[in-house]
């Protein structure tokens, strides 16, 4: 099993650990045991926006069976959810609600941008009412391209998220944001203004890419 908790102590190498495991002794650290446990029960928020939501439902049904990866418990309330799957086009009218839902979720929490629309606006990017990527307002952990992504792609994104959770540290400079004092746990909710969102992006999270042109 590749995802069993591994020992963190630097003095014990992999061969010793394997030998100990054969003898029935499992060496691990609190950190990895904790991450291993919670990576296998990521509860998503039951929150559909557009077309991708249908594929999200399909992933939770019998054929693709997201329950194999411990994420079949779709919670209707953000207070009980660990994972926000932004499944579909985020319009400017909907953005404040999505950010508010994100703020209502308890830490540690993760976000998957599912589909081209959630990543960048997708085919509707030219639309006047379409947000060009949810990562302008909330931090995104995993991006799943596709229009819509297949359910297998969502499962792959979930597995990638589990890898990411298992690699998280509980202390030190690499600790996740909810364990650091300097990082905000809540993100400012934009206002649906007269012409555009106010502000149009969260500058802490997103800056327009600087394109370097070759002379």
């Amino acid at each position: 099993m590749s995802d069993t908790p591994a020992a963190a102590h630097p003095d014990i190498d992999q061969a010793t650990r394997d030998e100990l495991r054969r003898q029935g002794i499992l060496l691990t650290s609190m950190e990895e045991l904790y991450n291993w446990g919670r990576s296998h029960s990521v509860w998503p928020l039951q929150f559909g926006l557009a077309c991708c939501a249908i594929e999200m439902i399909a992933a939770s049904m019998a054929k693709f069976d997201i329950a194999r990866f411990g994420s079949e418990v779709f919670r209707p309330s953000p207070r009980q959810a660990d994972l926000l799957i932004v499944s579909g086009t985020v319009t400017k009218k909907m953005t404040p609600q999505v950010v508010r839902l994100w703020n209502q979720m308890p830490e540690p929490k993760y976000c998957i941008a599912m589909g081209a629309c959630a990543i960048s606006g997708g085919p509707f990017k030219q639309g006047y009412n379409v947000l060009k990527g949810i990562d302008r307002f909330i931090p995104v952990d995993i991006y799943i391209p596709g229009c819509p992504p297949r359910p297998e792609a969502l499962l792959n994104g979930l597995l990638a998220l589990q890898e990411k959770i298992r690699a998280q540290k509980l202390s030190g400079p690499d600790a996740p944001r909810h364990l650091r004092a300097d990082d905000p746990c809540e993100y400012p909710v934009p206002e649906f203004g007269e012409h555009d969102l106010l502000p149009t992006k969260n500058p802490v999270l997103w800056q327009a890419p600087i394109i370097v042109r070759k002379e």
Partner: peptide, 11 residues
């Protein structure tokens, strides 16, 4: 309405 208004007709 309008939370999924994606400007279909304008596009």
């Amino acid at each position: 309405f309008g939370y999924l208004h994606r400007n279909h007709e304008k596009l």
